[in-house]
Design a protein around this nucleic acid. Sequence first.
DNA 1: ACAGCCATGTAACTCGTTACATGATTAC
DNA 2: GTAATCATGTAACGAGTTACATGGCTGT
Lengths: 185, 185
Amino acid sequence: MRQDLPATAYALLGLLTLGEEPVTGYELKQRADSTLRFYWVSPAMSQIYSELARLTERGLVAATSEQDGGREVTSYAITAAGREALHTWMADTPAGFPVLKHSVCLRLLMGHAADPEGTVRMLEEYVEECAAARADLQQVRDGLRGNDGPGQPFFHPSLVADWGLDYFEDEARHARRALDRLRED
Amino acid sequence: MRQDLPATAYALLGLLTLGEEPVTGYELKQRADSTLRFYWVSPAMSQIYSELARLTERGLVAATSEQDGGREVTSYAITAAGREALHTWMADTPAGFPVLKHSVCLRLLMGHAADPEGTVRMLEEYVEECAAARADLQQVRDGLRGNDGPGQPFFHPSLVADWGLDYFEDEARHARRALDRLRED
DNA sequence: ACAGCCATGTAACTCGTTACATGATTAC
DNA sequence: GTAATCATGTAACGAGTTACATGGCTGT
């Protein structure tokens, strides 16, 4: 049975396996923003809801609605079929090469068509943004401590977080190097 | 006058500034594949043609059709208005943070839901793919030599190429580090 | 009282892809 | 002659976004 869902659907399934209790779409968005967004486009709220609807339809997640005062709140949990689908996807579908839309490199490539000061400013800002992203991720990483050993729940997230921390540092280094060469002449 | 075109349109405009002669859509695709694709999604042929049509409509590129034997071949060149639009876009529109869809990190994040051997295999393959991408880019980089000094035509492309070479090396290093930690336990 | 967060969705739209279709030229 | 490459497009579709709409709950 081919599932053929977009990667984002499996990303959401994966996020649902990170906790025990069912979560609302809103909470899932927050979970995505705090973990996923460093390596993957964090989906818009509207997409989370429509994706959850599709996953529910296919029986990969189970929705439970409850009355919370005057409003109806729906929480979602991954089902056994969902876990199986996720597992199958991970085993059978090649990961593929990461897709990058590096706006900074794109502009640097066409730097001859811009004001030199503009290019320098852009790179300086990028260095700062990398530092900020790194600080955000460091917060997340710190929250994993104590449960990040082999076999523990946050083992894999900690691997990815450390990857990301290095990545942001490297990016800042690359930008600084380009800045040095721009200032040379 | 707001132009409000997608970044890919400006990327194509930028590619058109890299050479002197008008190029066909087909040649533009090859130019994109050899430079852009390392930092930006290389657009599909069909998108190149439709984007060129829109740019022509707006007067940012000029199309010249010629009879080449039995078939009509259309070549495109950037216009003065196109250069101005590109310059304005570079000056006024913030670059924004790069968008990443890192399928390898995404899967590593959910590694607990996969077979450990599968995760290891994925990372080993990624290391190889990074090496292959780096080798491809090295070819491109070598082609820039001699014209890559400050003020020369390939100065900015060479900055980006060196950035990319380092990037692929870093990625392979990150993957190897994750592999080491996976093998530890 | 009012701001800000929690929570859920719909509608319109754009970007970009794959599949399809066509046909000329060039190299073996 | 036939395969690969050059060259140009159309059509259908899917992913994902922004804008819009609604309304309850919570803290000050």
